[in-house]
């Protein structure tokens, strides 16, 4: 059975692009437009990996990660940040919140898939 990945981004086009890349690689994809919705979708589904943006309305990526890490089901689930933010302080904040990795947009599909396979195998 194929793995399910949750993509959280307030930009529809980014969600579409990520979903397109992942579906072509054989993954199931579920989407959310902000951290709050991301939490709901993650809790209503069994998600194997999460790719999230940082700055989003209602709840940002860091807060969503902190909340998810409190759930037993998502304590060790790989969570990747996919954001335009490249500031080191923000990256450190992401690490502290419990993110598995940090990818700076624009993303390269091959690189994204490589990273996903890497963190899923770990």
């Amino acid at each position: 059975m194929s793995k399910t990945i949750l993509t959280v981004d307030d930009s529809i086009s980014i969600r579409q692009m990520v979903a397109f890349t992942l579906k072509q690689a054989g993954f199931n994809v579920v989407e959310a437009s902000d951290g709050e919705q991301g939490l709901q979708v993650a809790r209503n589904n069994s998600v194997d990996l999460i790719i999230t943006d940082l700055n989003m309305p209602n709840m940002d990526g860091l807060q969503m990660i902190q909340n998810l890490r409190g759930d037993a089901a998502y304590k060790f689930t790989p969570i990747l940040m996919l954001t335009t933010e490249s500031d080191d302080t923000k990256k450190m904040a992401g690490k502290q919140a419990g993110a598995t990795g940090w990818l700076v947009k624009p993303f390269n599909p091959e690189q994204l898939l490589k990273v996903i396979n890497k963190v899923m195998a770990a």
Partner: peptide, 20 residues
């Protein structure tokens, strides 16, 4: 064709950056 479509789709990431 599939490769080109994928490349084209990825090129639209400029929109997210522009919006920000």
């Amino acid at each position: 064709i599939s490769g080109s479509v994928q490349t084209l789709v990825q090129k639209f990431q400029f929109q997210d950056r522009t919006m920000q």
